[in-house]
Design a protein around this nucleic acid. Structure first.
Lengths: 264, 264
DNA sequence: TAGTGGTCTAGACCACTTC
DNA sequence: AAGTGGTCTAGACCACTAA
C-alpha cells in the first residue's frame, strides 16, 4: 500500500490539476489537516513537500501554502540566435525571445557582473587555454518580471573583447545587439555553435538565486560559439530552473559516407 | 543555521566525494548514527534521503545504504543517427552508441512491445492525424547491463510500416539496421529531425521502471523524424533517467536574412 | 528470525511574516 | 502577538531481505 503521505499528496495534486484549488489559492493549513485526521503534522508536511517538489505549490513560513502559477514552458529553439536579430536589428537575442513569446520586455530584468578571472577547468578546455589563464567572465541573472529564470555566465578571451562594450560593467545587455553584435563589430562573426545539456541537483546557492522549490532540479547548458574558422569566441554556462524551459533542436540526419571530405 | 539533517547530509556527501566512502561501500546504519548522537531516526533518515536525491547512495530495506557506482554520463550527440551506421553497416543506432562509448553490447538489453493503439494527443499532432486515429506503438525499455536507462516509444503510421519487421513483435532491435533501416527499405529515407527536451518529475511507474532514486528527475525527449519531403515517419517519446545522460547539439547560427527563400 | 530502511505519531520548539 | 510552515525527538510499528 502506498504510504499515507503519498495518498494525501496524490489527492491534493488531483484537486489542483482539476482546478479545484486554483492558482494563487491557499491550501488548507497543515494543522487543519491534522485536525481533520489526515495524519500527524510530520505526515501532512511530507505530503506538502511532495507537492512542492512537483512544482505544484509554494510553501513559506508565515504565509501558508499556495498553488503555484503554472507558467508555461519557455521554448528555446535555435532561432533565438538568428543573426538577423542581433546584426541587422536592434534586438538583443534574449529580448527577441520575449518578443517571440509575446511577453513584455522590461528594463533591469537582467543583472550583470563583469570580472577578469582565472579560467576554471571547463572554460580553459573550451577556449583551448591552459588552466588559470585569465578570461573575462560576464555573469548575468536573467529574470522574467520578478521571477529569476536562469543564470548565464559567458567567458571571453581578453584579446577578443578588450576595450569593447562587453567589458564595460554597466548592468543590462551589452548594448545594442548584445554580446554577439559586439564580437561581430570586433571582427569576430559567429558561425556555428555547440550546446551541451544535462540535468542535475542544484547547489544551495543556485536554489536561493533561482528561487527553486526544494527538490527542483536545474538544467545546465554549455554553449560554445565559434567563428567560421573554428575559433572559440564565447563559452557560456547557463543554469536553468528545470521546470521553466524546454529546448528544441532541428538537424539534418548526418551521413558520414557522404560528407567524408567536408570540414567538420 | 542549516538544519541538522542537512549538515549531516553535507558531511557524508563530502566523505563520499573524497573517496572516504568508496562506491559499493555501506554507509553506517541509521540506528548507529542515532546512537552516535547524530539525531533521531527521522533526522538521520532525512539526511540519507537527501543523499539519495543527489544520486550518491542507494538505500534499500534489508540491504542497507550503499554508495552508488558513479556511472559517467552517456553523451548523446546527433552523430548517433549517422546514416552510415544503419544504412550501410549492420549496426543498429543504439548499438553504435555503445560501440562509441566502448561498452559491450549484450543481447536482451532491450525489451520491446509492439501494439496498435489510438494516437494520444501529442502523437496525433506530430503525425498530423486526428486524435484517436490508429498508430503503431513500439515501446522499448533500454538497459545498460541490468540497469535500465531509458524508455523509448516510437509511433508510426500504419501505412508506413504495415507488413515490415517493425510490426513484428519479436523482442530486440527491429532487425538489422533498426527502425530507420526498415523505413528506408520501405521507401522512406529519413532526412531531418527535431528533438525537444525538458525535465520533469517522474511518474511512480517511471520511477519503478527506471529504478530511479527517489527525488531523481527524468528528461523527456520528443523526437520527430521527417523524410526529405517533410513527411513525418516516426514520432518517438523517450524518458531518460536525468542523471545518466547529457545531450549535445551542433548547429549553424541561423540567418533568416540569408535563407529567406529556402525550404524550411 | 534477525537485520535493515521506511512510516507514523504526539508534541515541543523554532523561524519567518503579518498585523 | 498571532499565525504559519519547518525541524526535531523518542518510540512504535511496518516492509523487505537474507540466512
Amino acid at each position: 500500500m502506498a504510504p499515507k503521505w503519498r495518498e494525501l499528496a496524490d489527492k491534493l495534486a488531483e484537486q489542483i490539476k482539476s482546478g479545484e484549488y486554483a492558482p494563487g489559492v491557499q491550501l488548507p493549513q497543515i494543522r487543519d489537516l491534522v485536525a481533520a485526521g489526515e495524519g500527524s503534522k510530520d505526515t501532512v508536511h511530507k505530503a506538502y513537500k511532495a507537492l512542492e517538489v512537483q512544482g505544484l505549490v509554494t510553501s513559506s513560513r508565515g504565509h501558508g501554502t499556495v498553488v503555484r502559477q503554472q507558467t508555461p514552458l519557455k521554448r528555446l529553439g535555435i532561432a533565438r540566435y538568428d543573426k538577423a536579430k542581433w546584426r541587422d536589428g536592434d534586438e538583443v537575442a534574449f529580448i527577441a525571445d520575449r518578443v517571440a513569446s509575446g511577453r513584455a520586455y522590461r528594463r533591469n530584468e537582467q543583472t550583470q557582473r563583469v570580472s577578469r578571472v582565472p579560467a576554471p577547468p571547463l572554460v580553459a578546455e573550451a577556449h583551448g587555454l591552459h588552466e588559470g589563464a585569465e578570461v573575462y567572465a560576464r555573469a548575468r541573472l536573467v529574470k522574467e518580471g520578478s521571477q529569476p529564470t536562469h543564470t548565464l555566465t559567458s567567458y571571453y578571451r581578453p584579446e577578443h573583447v578588450e576595450g569593447t562594450r562587453i567589458v564595460d560593467p554597466t548592468p543590462g545587455p551589452a548594448g545594442r545587439g548584445g554580446g554577439f553584435r559586439v564580437l561581430y563589430d570586433a571582427g569576430y562573426e559567429i558561425d556555428h555553435m555547440k550546446e551541451d545539456l544535462f540535468a542535475r541537483v542544484p547547489t544551495d546557492e543556485e536554489s536561493q538565486l533561482l528561487q527553486l522549490s526544494p527538490g527542483e532540479w536545474v538544467v545546465e547548458l554549455h554553449r560554445t560559439t565559434y567563428t567560421a574558422d573554428g575559433t572559440v569566441v564565447e563559452f557560456a554556462i547557463g543554469v536553468h530552473a528545470a521546470t521553466r524551459f524546454s529546448w528544441s533542436y532541428d538537424f539534418k540526419v548526418p551521413d558520414s559516407a557522404k560528407t567524408e571530405g567536408e570540414r567538420k
